[in-house]
Computed example of a mutant assay.
Amino acid sequence: MKSCIFCYPELDSSQQVIMENKNCLFLQKEQKILKGSGLIVPKNHKETVFDLNQEEWEDTHDLMLEVKNWLDEEFSPDGYNIGYNCLETGGQHIFHAHMHIIPRFQDEPYAGRGIRHWLKQESNRRIKR
């Protein structure tokens, strides 16, 4: 995985490591839309969240809480979306597990539309059942 930008964050000069612990990194790129958004990634290459071991889960959790405290101080969001996309159909584009942490703000045009929004849209109904 020598070309993986999460295994080797320095390959993408637009992202930076904001904080880390033994098994995980919190990465950010400059965001023009939702400031403060970033990713928690395991340091070892794991394709999806389903591949994380117990220690990686624990370090993900610990880092998530540190990131939340930092984002609360830096940006004072009104809410958060947190989640994983898994595999291509699930919206994963980089096949190294990564947790999205997205601070949300009341003055956004799409405020209040959480990660379940598309579950409720008739236009997203499957053609075959």
Rank of each mutant, 00 (worst) to 15 (best):
Q92H: 12
C4Q: 10
K46A: 09
P103Q: 01
K29Y: 06
N23Y: 13
Q106N: 09
N81V: 05
E56V: 10
I18K: 01
S123W: 06
N69F: 09
S3R: 04
Q106C: 12
E73L: 12
Q92C: 06
N69T: 06
N44F: 04
Q16N: 05
P109H: 14
K35T: 03
M1G: 07
Q121A: 05
Q121D: 05
Q54Y: 10
V17D: 10
Q16E: 15
G83W: 01
E47H: 14
A111T: 02
T60R: 01
I102T: 14
N44S: 03
L39G: 00
D59S: 09
M1W: 11
Q16L: 13
Q54P: 04
S76W: 14
S76L: 13
T60Q: 09
N23T: 09
I82T: 12
R129L: 07
R104S: 08
L63A: 01
L25C: 09
D12Y: 04
L87P: 01
F26R: 00
Q15W: 03
Y110C: 03
S76G: 02
L87Q: 13
C24K: 00
T89Y: 11
F26M: 15
I101Y: 11
Q28E: 04
K46I: 06
R129P: 05
G83D: 01
I40E: 00
K68A: 03
R126C: 02
C7N: 02
F75C: 02
C24S: 08
N21V: 08
T89V: 05
H45E: 07
G112Q: 08
R129W: 05
L87C: 03
G83Y: 00
E10W: 05
D62W: 12
H117R: 11
Q54I: 14
L11K: 06
P103F: 00
